[in-house]
Amino acid sequence: MHTVAVLALDGVIGLELTGACQIFATATDPASGQRLYDVRVCGDPGGTSVLAFDRPVLRAEAPYGLAAALTADTLVVPAAGEPSPEVVELVRAAHRRGVRIASICTGAFTLAAAGVLDGRRATTHWDHTTELARRHPAVEVVTDTLYLDEGDLLTSAGVTAGLDLCLHLVRRDHGSAVATAVARRLVMAPHRDGGQAQYVPTPVVEGNDSLEPLQHWMTVHLAEPLTLTSIAAQASMSTRTLSRRFRARTGTTPLQWLTTQRLHRARELLETTDLGIDQIASASGFGSALVLRQHFARSLSTTPSRYRRAFARPG
């Protein structure tokens, strides 16, 4: 079983700690119902101060010591206070061992202090990206993304973006169907693309100004050849107004959002049906197997056939 170690360092943000645990602990095999991850919270003996934003709300004692994190397959580093030399060395040693390491929010500062992000792309909460770049100039700091997947090293923006990152790891390990089941169980969005902007200046609102009905209509009509003009007509807006409102509320464009949903649909069909690649390309709105393969290569660095071999579920 894949072991996930989540660091509970002093000053850890409670939602990041428990949210990461919840995501991985909820993932189960669809056929057997068996858990897919062994989740271990690792920390210093004597307990950890857990924060809600910047205020201590409780003290918790981790069931595993820091050394247990070295034997994990994946190490998750949530936001906490300044890392101790022991923690910095722990991250270095885990990286040398080939452990997959993911940070949430300002946990990226711990990875940067260990030197594992030098020469790599990384992100953190939008309010701390400037400081991360100043303190660690060898890191290529990306300021406008929810999370970054660099293979063995992954970083994310603040709090809930960490949940998106953990769900992304479940999807990467076990496919879209398992990740979607986790999201459904936790009543969260099944997929937010990592490239989506993390800072959206206008909050999502309900009512007449909400894009939710339009987004639902787009998902229902994924297989159709939708254009920006046809989407704008459905919303009774000009293309310029639609694009402006869509980016303000989602951090991306209508067509980029549509492509993400189509990829998500194609992945689900590859995992759960015996449909041919041409049929899946048509059903997900890509039109042809060639276009589907191009999007898989660009976004997932694989082919539809390889993806199916890796994640197809019996029945």
Rank of each mutant, 00 (worst) to 15 (best):
G158T: 11
T160M: 00
T160N: 00
T160F: 00
T160P: 02
A161R: 10
A161I: 08
G162V: 11
G162K: 10
G162L: 06
L163T: 15
L163N: 02
L163G: 01
L163R: 05
D164A: 08
D164Q: 09
L165H: 07
L165A: 08
L165W: 07
C166W: 05
C166N: 14
C166A: 14
L167W: 07
L167A: 09
L167Q: 03
L167R: 06
H168I: 04
H168G: 03
H168K: 02
H168A: 09
L169Y: 04
L169E: 02
L169F: 13
V170H: 03
V170E: 08
V170W: 05
V170S: 01
R171E: 15
R172Q: 09
R172F: 06
D173N: 08
D173M: 14
D173T: 12
H174D: 02
G175K: 14
G175L: 12
S176I: 07
A177H: 10
A177T: 13
V178H: 08
A179T: 06
T180C: 10
T180A: 14
A181G: 03
A181T: 12
V182H: 02
A183D: 08
R184T: 10
R185N: 11
R185M: 09
R185I: 09
L186F: 04
L186Q: 01
V187S: 11
M188F: 03
M188G: 04
M188C: 06
M188T: 05
A189K: 07
A189Y: 07
A189H: 15
A189P: 00
A189M: 12
P190R: 00
P190T: 11
H191Q: 11
H191N: 04
R192Q: 04
R192I: 05
D193C: 12
D193R: 11
D193I: 03
G194K: 00
G194V: 00
G194T: 12
G195H: 10
G195Q: 14
G195I: 06
G195P: 04
Q196M: 15
Q196N: 05
Q196F: 10
Q196C: 09
Q196A: 10
A197W: 05
A197G: 12
Q198R: 06
Q198I: 08
Y199G: 02
Y199Q: 03
Y199S: 11
V200T: 14
V200C: 12
V200Y: 05
T202Y: 11
T202Q: 03
